[in-house]
């Protein structure tokens, strides 16, 4: 075992990259859950985003167009969920599972001809002299634009929920849809928009995996990141800043586990690969005691007649 093989600078820069898909997916789900909807289809929307982004980037040669397509793809799939739960009032847990199962199959179908293809690279943002600062430069100023977008979105969602009228309405719908309806807010419309935002974010997160983190396409490549994102929302008790912290924690664990595999630690690879999932469970156990932060209408369907 040779721990000195792990370069601390590359490690930190790497875990920022590993955390970004989680940030996107979990942030989208946070907004969805704030509106009172539990969408368990994150994994499905992510994998659809991953292939839509990958295919578009390969075909057009532009990774940025790929990310745009990923957001559209994720949002389009989430519309199916919105239709099921908001229009036909289906059970949200079942609909979310359906979305994941369907997304995994559909992405495999779309991605058949893209196995083994190399996507175009997204260039690093040019920060000029900032990039050359020792330590900070390689960690903070050597990434692609999407990584910074993820960070900016956390700030934007936080500000939106805390300071704006739109955020207040969204939270009202999530806390008590009946009261919000009585005040004249369009519960179904607001929730549908939130679901679509969640889908677009999950799609971006998925594309970040297939275009930047890995970068290639394999079936089922999201490997549970969507589910970890769901756990992360609970971990964050529905607060954007804690979500960011949690995503870095999980990104760090994932990256550390990969680095340890590379460094040839005596622990078998399989057991290292288990660790992010086991740690997710442990974190859930520790944080499950406090459910007071959950939106009060979470998971309950709304129909104006009831």
């Amino acid at each position: 075992m040779d721990l000195s093989a792990i370069n601390p600078l590359l490690f930190v820069a790497g875990f920022l990259v590993a955390a970004t898909p989680l940030i996107f997916a979990a942030l989208g789900e946070l907004v969805v859950e704030k509106s009172g909807v539990l969408n368990l289809g994150v994994e499905g929307m992510m994998i659809i985003g991953a292939i839509c982004g990958f295919a578009t980037a390969v075909e057009t040669g532009s990774p940025l167009l790929g990310f745009a397509a990923a957001a559209v793809g994720g949002a389009a799939l989430s519309l199916l969920f919105a239709f099921l739960t908001q229009i036909t009032l289906a059970n949200q847990v079942a609909s979310g599972l359906a979305l994941t199962l369907f997304g995994l199959g559909f992405s495999a179908l779309l991605g058949q001809s893209y196995v083994g293809v190399k996507p175009p690279r997204l260039a690093e943002v040019n920060f000029g002299p900032l990039h050359d600062i020792p330590v900070l430069g390689p960690i903070l100023f050597s990434h692609d634009i999407i990584l910074y977008l993820g960070f900016a979105m956390v700030v934007a969602v936080w500000a939106m929920l805390k300071f704006t009228r739109a955020g207040l309405i969204l939270r009202a719908v999530g806390e008590s849809h009946d009261a919000a309806h009585a005040l004249g807010y369009k519960v179904v419309r607001i929730r549908t928009l939130a679901i679509m935002f969640g889908g677009a974010c999950a799609g971006l997160g998925g594309a970040y995996i297939s275009l930047i983190r890995v970068p290639q396409w394999t079936e089922g490549m999201t490997a549970g990141v969507g589910w970890i994102a769901l756990a992360l929302v609970v971990f964050a008790s529905w607060k954007p800043w804690r979500l960011l912290l949690g995503a870095y924690l999980f990104g760090g664990i994932t990256q550390l586990q990969l680095n340890l595999q590379g460094a040839g630690v005596a622990i078998p690879v399989e057991y290292l690969a288990m660790s992010p999932y086991i740690i997710t469970i442990l974190v859930l156990v520790v944080l499950s005691a406090d459910k007071s932060a959950a939106p009060a209408s979470l998971g309950r369907n709304f129909h104006a007649s009831s």
Partner: peptide, 17 residues
């Protein structure tokens, strides 16, 4: 093979709807 997976997923969608 994936087409069948999609097919099975669809089934659940239509059922829920």
């Amino acid at each position: 093979a994936a087409a069948i997976q999609v097919f099975q997923g669809m089934l659940l969608f239509y059922l829920l709807a």
